[in-house]
Write a protein that binds this DNA or RNA. Sequence first.
RNA 1: UCCUCUUUAGCUCAGUUGGUUAGAGCACAUGACUGUUAAUCAUGGGGUCCUAGGUUCAAGUCCUAGAAGAGGAGCCA
Length: 465
Amino acid sequence: MASVKRIKIKELLSSKAFNSEVLAMGWVRTRRGNKNVAFIALNDGSTINNIQIVADVEVFSEDFLKDVSTGACISVEGTLVESPGAEQPVEIRAKKIEVIGKADPTTYPLQKKGHSLEFLREIAHLRPRTNTFGAVLRIRHSMAFAIHKYFNDKGFFYIHTPIVTGSDAEGAGAMFRVTTLDMENPPRTEDGKINWSEDFFGKEANLTVSGQLEGELAALALSDIYTFGPTFRAENSNTPRHLAEFWMIEPEMAFYDITDNMDLAEDFLKYLVRYALENCKDDLEFLNKMWDKELLERLQFVVDNPFVRLTYTEGVEILEKANQKWEFPVSWGVDLQSEHERYLVEKHFKKPVILTGYPRNIKAFYMKQNDDGKTVRAMDVLFPKIGEIIGGSQREEDYDKLYSRIKEMNIHEEQLWWYLETRKFGTAPHSGFGLGFERLLLFVTGMGNIRDVIPFPRTPKNCEF
RNA sequence: UCCUCUUUAGCUCAGUUGGUUAGAGCACAUGACUGUUAAUCAUGGGGUCCUAGGUUCAAGUCCUAGAAGAGGAGCCA
């Protein structure tokens, strides 16, 4: 197509190769100008910044330039020059412009002026072309990359745990069923129930709600592992912090106790935030300016300050003494409500908090029981604005204690025989936690709604795109 | 799922006590302008007032039901 090789706009903007011939391709953000000259702001997603294309009307007729409208895809060949304008270092003096894909201005939904996030959600197929979603998606990539880099550098192994699961044992919430049966006319057993033994897997199957149990199996062989994959919850949750399909990171480490686990969680989160500050500067500055004026300050604060660590019991004491009216009263043994968590994080300590030592009755069966017989070695990392960002624990490695807990809680032990066997054969103390990837992104981007930090959100009554 | 709020032009919103032809900004179209910075200026077109009932001489406005969206809560990551 062209004699020159296409260069991405991010590279062009920092180039010093003035007067060289370049080729750029991208989507038009705005066009403005007068009878003599037109200015085109071009973006290809490589950076939030646009490159300015200068087109003389002598060379490009006004009629031709009509097709170079907001949203159109064009390629531009021209000379890279220093820009006389103050807003950009370089610009391209166009010699040849080709309209690759028109965008009819009367029907193209995106305008150069800002749109509400609610409206953009309705056009999720086009919203990556906006500054905000370009920034969010680049940051999302950077965080995913940093997660793999962090664990790889520490000698952790990435384990792919199954997405389709035959057990609902973890009890982490309602599940999506996976089936190939004809739902109009399913096979029945003699007593009229659906005969799942005729289904694809010969038993009931669901989408995973957590890779943790399988992650533990791997940790009890490879020492340090992590998972990073999609997770599905069929809860009817309608909040800015929940998705039906989200991504979760679950490290699991042999020979880690709860303190090692907290140390890792804190170091991990700080590493990720620092990585964002160092590698996503342009995008973060845009989000700071546009949506959340305290974003950069808050990110820096998290990197610079140690997290507060306290026990559930200490937390409850603080809440009981607080001069505060609670919608849900606090006393030892109740699960903390978000008003309580927010008080501790946002009012009392004003920094991230790690809570440990929860009552055993409000936590999952696999958590390690303390000697007091009342509490378990759970930990929740609570962040300002978004609440629980990490939930984890030291795991119960003692077969008898684990087994009796499973019995107490009426969990189907026959679905967990493989999990129990790891405690029977060469058991070891181990710990792990789960980090909600989109919750992390809420914090790092400062966005207010989790549906705006994933490209195509799945929520109750919404599976478009 | 519960509570509260919202739904009027392509987008963001105003619309008085129920009263005649429902407005603004932006976008879009047309024109003007010798380097613009979400350019500017002038002119213009553009409406299922979310849906279905109801009250009334008269409903964008009041009532009932429903739908969709948002915020808070619960569940959790």
